[in-house]
């Protein structure tokens, strides 16, 4: 079992923008919390939204830790992560082109990284799957 920690740094004001995208408004989040749909994670979001509204300059270190089994990261995987992070390709085809590799090879690698929680995909125009890496660094604690 390998522990992989992904970390990013985000300013309070940017975190608020993310909350706005996710919930629309703080009133809407409060409504969700008052309804039966609300849970403890919504409560954490509300606490953070209120905190960063008063402290927009504060910096937040946001992390995600995943425990992966049998993950072998090759140099191509690292190159793939680097390209997604720094060149923001709009599709797997574009990513393959940046890496100068076959689309099928890159697709397979990307699927594996998605499964392990290292990257995500969002749906773009014409059903394109846009690879996303929202973190600034990946740590492997020993």
């Amino acid at each position: 079992m390998t522990v992989i920690k992904m970390v990013r740094f985000v300013k309070g004001e940017d975190k608020i923008k993310e909350f706005k995208e996710k919930y629309g408004s703080i009133e809407n989040l409060k409504r969700i919390l008052d309804s039966s749909e609300g849970d403890m994670l919504n409560e954490l979001d509300l606490e953070n939204w209120e905190h960063y509204s008063s402290n927009p300059e504060e910096l937040l270190q946001e992390g995600k830790t995943v425990f992966v089994e049998n993950l072998k990261l090759s140099s191509l995987d690292f190159e793939l992560l680097h390209q997604i992070k720094n060149n923001s390709p709009a599709s797997i085809k574009e990513l393959a082109s940046l890496l100068n590799k076959e689309v099928s090879t890159v697709q397979k690698k990307a699927k594996c990284l998605e499964k392990e929680g290292l990257i995500q995909f969002k749906l773009g125009s014409k059903n394109r799957r846009i690879p996303i890496l929202n973190y600034d660094k990946i740590e492997i604690p020993i």
Binding site: N48, K64, V66, F67
Partner: peptide
């Protein structure tokens, strides 16, 4: 820094804020 972290342990997810 302020800290926000999510860890996946088995069937559970641990969130720190």
């Amino acid at each position: 820094y302020n800290l926000k972290d999510k860890s996946f342990i088995g069937d559970y997810t641990l969130h720190i804020n």
